[in-house]
């Protein structure tokens, strides 16, 4: 069920990217899209009644049923790349604010 809802969350992010004209709102929409995508990628590795993919002294054999570790590893790196993208986008937005004095894309005047 969370898989359908994560696709809906991605669609909310796309809607924000299409309809907003404020730079901060655009970056927030990009982040919402990214969170939805991360939940979707983790959900395609979920196994019903599976264990978390860590061997401990309680669940000590690899013959038990674990969830898929590969999508989780991909998402772990994707989250860290996401903070890099957000920081770069916000630095660009701040630079544009300094020259134009506004975050609204419609109110900026071209040279």
């Amino acid at each position: 069920m969370i898989q359908y809802l994560s696709i809906a969350l991605m669609l909310v992010g796309i809607y924000g990217l299409l309809s907003q004209r404020n730079m901060i709102k655009l970056i927030v929409s990009l982040n919402i899209f990214e969170i939805g995508l991360n939940i979707f990628i983790v959900s395609i590795g979920f196994v019903k009644d599976g264990l978390a993919p860590i061997l401990t002294s309680n669940h000590n054999s690899s013959a038990l049923l674990y969830v898929d570790p590969l999508p989780q590893a991909m998402v772990l790196t994707a989250i860290v790349i996401g903070v890099g993208i957000t920081a770069l986008a916000l630095a660009l937005a701040r630079k544009l604010y300094k020259t134009h004095g506004t975050y609204e894309l419609d109110e900026m005047e071209g040279e």
């Binding site: 993919p53 860590i54 061997l55 401990t56 674990y66 570790p69 590969l70 989780q72 590893a73 772990l76 790196t77």
Partner: peptide, 9 residues
């Protein structure tokens, strides 16, 4: 590694 996610990464 006992943590499979770490071993993949």
């Amino acid at each position: 590694s006992a943590n499979y996610v770490t071993s993949v990464i």
